[in-house]
């Protein structure tokens, strides 16, 4: 199992389109992937689950992955966050 902390960098936070991109990416991996924010833990493969976090820019979330491709999954998800979900130049 891998856990990695990640700061939300895009202005709009984990809003609908960002959550859709995140869940789409998470679904491309075999591993179980969760996003933890404060006391909440949601399935990263669920768009509506991610939205319930209402996580905003500057918030720190934790990505937790477990499975045969956990390393690649966490790396790809961190990359998506660091690219600000391709929303900003």
């Amino acid at each position: 199992m891998i856990e990695k902390s990640q700061t939300i960098l895009n202005k709009l936070g984990l809003h609908a389109r960002a959550a859709a991109k995140l869940s789409h990416l998470a679904n491309s991996f075999n591993s179980d992937i969760h996003i933890v924010f404060n006391e909440d833990r949601v399935n990263a493969k669920s768009l509506l689950g991610i939205l319930t976090l209402a996580a905003a820019v500057g918030n720190d979330i934790t990505i937790v992955a477990e499975g045969d491709d956990e390393k690649e999954a966490v790396a790809a998800i961190c990359d998506l966050f660091n690219r600000k979900f391709d929303e900003e130049n």
């Binding site: 609908a16 389109r17 859709a20 991109k21 789409h24 768009l47």
Partner: peptide
């Protein structure tokens, strides 16, 4: 409209 919004969100 619902379909258009859903398609925009999911790209």
């Amino acid at each position: 409209e619902l379909i258009q919004v859903a398609e925009k969100i999911l790209e």
